[in-house]
Simulated scan of single mutants.
Amino acid sequence: MLVIGLDGALLGRIEDAGAPHLAALMAAGLTAPSLVEPDVPTLSGPGWATILTGARHAKHQVRDNSFTGNRFARYPDFLTRLASARPDLDTCAITSWAPLAEKVFSARVGTRVATPDAEYDAGTTDRAVGALRDGDPDALFVQLDGVDDAGHRHGAASPRYLEAVRGADAQVGRMVAAVGARPADEDWLVMVTTDHGHTDAGGHGGPSLAERRTFLIAVGEGLASGSVRADVRMPDVAATALAHHGLALDPDWDLDGRPLRAPAATR
Rank of each mutant, 00 (worst) to 15 (best):
D126Q: 12
R127Y: 11
A128W: 01
A128N: 04
V129A: 03
V129E: 11
G130H: 13
A131M: 08
D134H: 03
D138Y: 02
D138F: 08
A139I: 07
L140Q: 08
F141T: 03
V142S: 03
D145H: 08
G146K: 03
D148A: 13
D148C: 02
D149I: 04
A150D: 04
A150C: 04
A150Q: 06
G151N: 14
H152L: 10
R153D: 10
G155F: 02
A156P: 13
A157H: 12
P159T: 04
P159F: 08
R160Y: 06
R160Q: 04
L162V: 06
L162Y: 05
E163L: 04
E163I: 06
E163G: 12
A164P: 11
R166C: 09
A168M: 05
A168V: 14
G173S: 05
G173L: 08
R174C: 07
M175F: 12
M175Q: 11
V176P: 02
A178T: 11
A178D: 02
V179C: 01
V179I: 15
V179L: 05
G180N: 09
G180P: 13
A181E: 15
A184G: 14
D185V: 14
D185K: 08
D185A: 15
D187R: 15
D187T: 04
W188S: 00
L189F: 12
V190G: 03
V190S: 13
M191D: 01
V192Q: 11
T194S: 14
H196R: 08
G197N: 09
D200K: 01
A201D: 14
G202N: 00
G202W: 01
G202C: 01
G205F: 00
G205V: 01
G205A: 05
G205D: 04
S208T: 13
A210E: 09
E211K: 00
E211F: 01
R212M: 07
R213W: 00
T214E: 02
L216Q: 03
I217R: 02
I217V: 15
G220T: 09
G222N: 09
G222L: 00
L223W: 15
S225P: 01
G226D: 10
R229G: 02
A230F: 11
A230S: 12
M234G: 04
P235Q: 09
A238S: 09
A238V: 02
A239S: 06
A241P: 11
A241Q: 14
L242Q: 12
A243K: 13
H244G: 15
H245L: 13
L247A: 07
L247F: 06
P251H: 14
P251S: 11
P251A: 09
D252H: 15
W253E: 15
D256Q: 09
R258N: 12
R258L: 07
